[in-house]
Write a protein that binds this DNA or RNA. Structure first.
Lengths: 206, 206
DNA sequence: TAGGGCTGACCGAACGATCGTTCAGGCGGG
DNA sequence: CCCGCCTGAACGATCGTTCGGTCAGCCCTA
């Protein structure tokens, strides 16, 4: 067995166990068993339990951002860039469901300074979304509004990507088209008057 | 102290501790301390730790659905009903941030049969959203598409309601207007041709 | 009305299990 | 012989849960 192979096996075993049980419920003994090692053997490669979570998060976020950048490079219009983000996210959710689940559920459980390092990578991903929406925005929205909109978009994506909606890659692509159409139209086509109307309806029903 | 008062104090103490630490990291000792009881005193009122999570989830979901039904009763058009759902969810997120966090993060951690009982209440809430969207839909979407759209909507709402975006009730109302305008327009106004175009763009970039 | 017994509220202390982590040592190839 | 790879066994801490006991208040009867 090659030298790094064990290490990769440990990371992917940790990913599976943590995703299924949650970080604090995933014992180091179970991760070691899943990796085909004894408990002490696992600690030969890893310093502490936190490092396992960090490894999973770090590698997954690197891969997610790399996927996004690769897909963004091919997109020429702002619309295409938004669709590339959506497709990247849902594809990632299909191919790495465990990793995405951990990214969304367990990212706050790290201790410093690893927590900040992961938060920065999450922030970098969100920043790409925010930039895309700013380029796309025909309404001169404020940064706060763009930030909200970015979180709305990512919330939509995580809401469906985390749950077992994606049974096939075609499902992911179909859902990407749905999300793209829905969000794009809502984001682009609403008129200022229409939003005022909705806003007053919200206030009226209070 | 009235008889039920202690019980309410225990439930709200559990809500606070579980929201902040996560269910499995929230020890019964810490919950007892937050409730002003000894550990054994807590177990005088509660059979097991699972029951604490169940109590928080059960009461919170009951309140959320009741809020929704109350606000839906005043809404007359399908649009108003959608806006009522959005406003209810964000208001709940503002007033009961701890509870909403637990609903979204810890709802799978219960053992049977309590898990199924809570799942049914979550399902009832989602079902109301699905019914609203079906009444609103001008495109004769399939049940699967409506189900996806409902989850997209709730994903958006949870994405912003769980995080500390809602600093004031006005924030919640403003965000409700934003979400309402964005989702309503995306859901209503897209044309079938436009979605085909988006779909082919997604496929093209694959 | 005095007093004995019952009940619910609550506590200190401990139970066994499991947790993350460590350590001394065996084993096999250079 | 040495050095990575790996193990069994144990460490102390913390977990959920239980047990025996205290104390105040209420009911019942003499």
């Amino acid at each position: 067995m090659a030298i790094g192979e064990r290490y990769e096996g440990i990371v992917s075993a940790a990913c599976g166990v943590i995703a299924r049980r949650g970080f604090h419920q995933a014992s180091t003994r179970e991760i070691a068993r899943a990796a085909g090692l004894s408990l002490a053997g696992l600690y030969h490669y890893v310093g502490e339990k936190d490092e396992l979570l960090f490894l999973v998060l770090d590698r997954s976020l690197d891969r997610l951002v790399a996927d996004l950048d690769r897909n963004l490079a091919e997109a020429r219009t702002p619309e295409d860039r938004l669709l590339a983000l959506i497709r990247t996210h849902l594809d990632f959710g299909f191919h790495h469901a465990h990793a995405l689940r951990i990214i969304n559920r367990d990212h706050e459980l790290l201790a410093e300074p690893r927590r900040s390092e992961i938060a920065a990578k999450r922030q970098a991903y969100l920043q790409r979304g925010l930039t895309i929406l700013r380029d796309l925005d025909p309404h001169r929205r404020s940064e706060d509004e763009l930030f909200s909109a970015t979180n709305l978009l990512l919330g939509m994506l995580n809401g469906i990507a985390t749950r077992p909606f994606l049974r096939s890659l075609d499902d992911a692509r179909g859902l990407a088209a749905e999300v793209g159409a829905l969000f794009l139209y809502g984001f682009l086509e609403r008129s200022a008057g229409a939003e005022r109307e909705v806003r007053s309806a919200v206030r009226r029903s209070a």
